[in-house]
Amino acid sequence: MRRIPILLFILLSLEAFALELPEGWRLPTAKELSGEERDNQHNSYISENRFTKAEGDFNGDGKIDSAYILISNKFNGDGLFLYLSGTKGYEWHILEESNWDKSYPDKNYVYSSPNMGVGTLPPSTFRRYVGKAWPTPTDIVPTEEDFANPALDYFRFESAGSLFFWSKSEQRFVRFWYSD
């Protein structure tokens, strides 16, 4: 009988440490992530969370940041969010949002699962990806100092891919496409 209150206390304590997600957003369900493309055997690197979370010191401040693919509770779509450390502590930043209701109005689009993945590219791999890209004149191409931190690999499975990296000169995250 004493075990139940102790177990309940432990569960409630763990809940207190849970990350509070941005309003209107949730984590993907196991069903939404059940596609074969999310299996590690089908990808060039391993993901312990089916390519829905990436971690690294993305802005170079010595603290680990986290990127998540989240699902909207308000519309058919998903987004790439970054839980980024800064001078005021950690804050949420949205890097990309896909709203299928806006993209396909009056089409009764039914959202089934996120079609994007996210991963962490260490600086050396980040450099190799940039070396394979064909930047347009409008792209902010990473400079030598930008390769000090890992980058976020944001990709559609077996299709388009882009990097989000912290540009030291711009003092912001920049998107750089490496495939279409």
Rank of each mutant, 00 (worst) to 15 (best):
L12N: 11
K63T: 09
R156W: 11
A67I: 01
A54Y: 00
K107S: 13
E96S: 15
N76D: 11
E55H: 05
Y111L: 11
I64M: 14
T52Q: 06
V174D: 03
N115I: 13
R128A: 15
N76L: 07
T87N: 12
R26F: 06
N108R: 11
S103F: 13
L163R: 05
Y90M: 09
S72T: 12
E97H: 08
T87G: 07
L80Q: 00
E36K: 13
D180Y: 14
G35D: 12
K74M: 05
G56A: 03
M116E: 09
A133F: 10
P135I: 02
T143H: 10
L11K: 06
L84A: 14
T87F: 09
A67M: 02
D180E: 12
L121K: 04
R2N: 13
I69L: 12
V174R: 02
P114C: 03
G77Q: 02
A133K: 00
K102M: 12
L12P: 06
F176R: 04
S112Y: 03
P137K: 05
D180M: 11
D180L: 12
V118W: 04
K63V: 12
E23A: 15
D65H: 01
S167T: 08
A18L: 06
S98Y: 14
R128N: 13
R175V: 14
R2M: 12
S13Y: 06
N49C: 10
G60I: 04
P122T: 11
I10K: 04
G35K: 08
S13V: 06
R3D: 13
D65Y: 00
L121V: 03
L33S: 07
D180K: 11
D65F: 00
E32W: 08
L12Y: 08
G119Q: 03
R2D: 13
F173K: 01
F58H: 00
R50H: 13
G131L: 01
Y90F: 08
N49L: 14
V174Y: 09
S113I: 03
S66I: 03
W177C: 09
A160D: 13
F51R: 00
P122L: 02
T143S: 14
I69R: 02
R2C: 10
G24A: 00
P105N: 04
S159W: 10
P135D: 03
S179D: 08
L80C: 01
D61S: 02
D101T: 09
S179I: 03
S66W: 01
